[in-house]
Measured scan of single mutants.
Amino acid sequence: RKEMTAACTPRRRIINLTSVLSLQEEINEQGHEVLREMLHNHSFVGCVNPQWALAQHQTKLYLLNTTKLSEELFYQILIYDFANFGVLRLSEPAPLFDLAMLALDSPESGWTEEDGPKEGLAEYIVEFLKKKAEMLADYFSLEIDEEGNLIGLPLLIDNYVPPLEGLPIFILRLATEVNWDEEKECFESLSKECAMFYSIRKQYISEESTLSGQQSEVPGSIPNSWKWTVEHIVYKALRSHILPPKHFTEDGNILQLANLPDLYKVFERC
């Protein structure tokens, strides 16, 4: 597991931080080997919608929660590849102030007048994250320049770009939802926020969305749709870069829909 690298990086740093090793061990302890084997050997059937997909393993048909699986995938990559990410360069710098204002204007932020003026909160978020810029760049390849612009994001899987519609809320939550006081809790909560931002979430995906850094293989055609990215990038990574937690067998994120021999018997009677 320590050699797990989802995106190509030129050289690998050895990380011996106790906090990170502890988080890696927790993933191992909570892992479910049968689910790992199923995901490793599954045959992708198709997307139901951005949140759900169908896959077959041996004779069984499964309904998989793409949102939760991708979130767990990105969390584990962030923990196992800690401080070893490439950088996704933004085509132009994104001012943190503008991103924070967009987030505060969104109902998702939960902002009320009692929280104070949005401009003041946005300025605080910019200054707060600028103070964390060195650590964010060093460990997470999340790059913020001296003017308070976001200029780079971590490359977690080759050819995958997170849904940038979720970027404003991500920046807001970096400042408000991460435990910045304790090292282990900081790395864990920061990785979880980043994983949620990178995950496939239906509120940020339309039929026209593209999450891939590449064009489709047909010359002159439109960019790959999110469905292509889910199948050929995300579920491909799920084959080798995730140890599913045991609770996925109990919380409805992986559901067995049918045993195909039983279905064949039904059709034979028709």
Rank of each mutant, 00 (worst) to 15 (best):
C8R: 06
S240D: 07
Y62E: 02
S141G: 06
Y75E: 12
Q256D: 09
L136V: 12
R173Q: 15
A53M: 13
L142Y: 04
S221T: 09
I157C: 10
H247F: 14
Y62G: 00
M101W: 15
A83Y: 02
Y204H: 06
E188L: 07
V234A: 13
T176W: 03
N16K: 05
V48W: 14
R269Y: 15
F128V: 02
E92S: 04
E114R: 04
I125E: 01
A122M: 01
E127K: 02
Y75D: 01
R269N: 14
Q56I: 03
E123Y: 15
L164V: 05
M196K: 06
D138G: 02
L63E: 10
L150Y: 00
T67H: 09
G120D: 02
E146G: 04
D262S: 08
S225L: 11
A55K: 02
D115G: 07
P117Q: 11
L99V: 09
L150C: 06
I27V: 04
G46P: 00
N259A: 06
W111K: 02
D181Q: 03
I157T: 09
P50Q: 09
Q76D: 13
E26V: 06
Q256S: 04
S43E: 04
E188W: 10
L156D: 00
F187L: 05
E114P: 11
E182Q: 06
I200C: 12
T176R: 01
L150F: 04
A175E: 00
K118W: 15
K192F: 13
M135N: 03
V161K: 06
P219W: 13
R239S: 14
L238M: 07
T176M: 02
E29D: 09
G220P: 09
L150Q: 00
K132H: 08
P244I: 10
A100K: 00
K131T: 12
T67F: 09
L190R: 00
L69N: 01
S189K: 04
F97E: 02
E231I: 04
F44W: 08
R12L: 11
Y75Q: 13
I200S: 06
P163G: 08
I27H: 14
P168M: 01
N49W: 12
E134T: 02
E3M: 11
S19F: 12
P154S: 00
N179S: 05
S199D: 00
S212I: 11
W111P: 02
L174D: 00
M101S: 12
V161I: 02
E119G: 15
D181F: 11
E268T: 08
K131G: 12
L174R: 00
L174A: 01
R13Q: 12
E182C: 05
P223S: 09
P93I: 04
G116I: 15
L243R: 07
S189A: 03
V178A: 01
E92I: 06
H40M: 13
L150G: 01
N259D: 07
E113T: 05
L260Q: 04
L153I: 05
N149T: 06
F140A: 13
E113F: 11
E29A: 09
C47Q: 10
E72R: 04
F197M: 10
P93G: 08
A100T: 02
L54M: 07
K132V: 01
K132M: 02
L211P: 05
F44V: 13
I77M: 08
Y204P: 06
E114N: 05
K131F: 14
P163M: 05
C186D: 02
V87Y: 08
N84D: 11
L21T: 03
K265C: 07
N149A: 08
E113C: 03
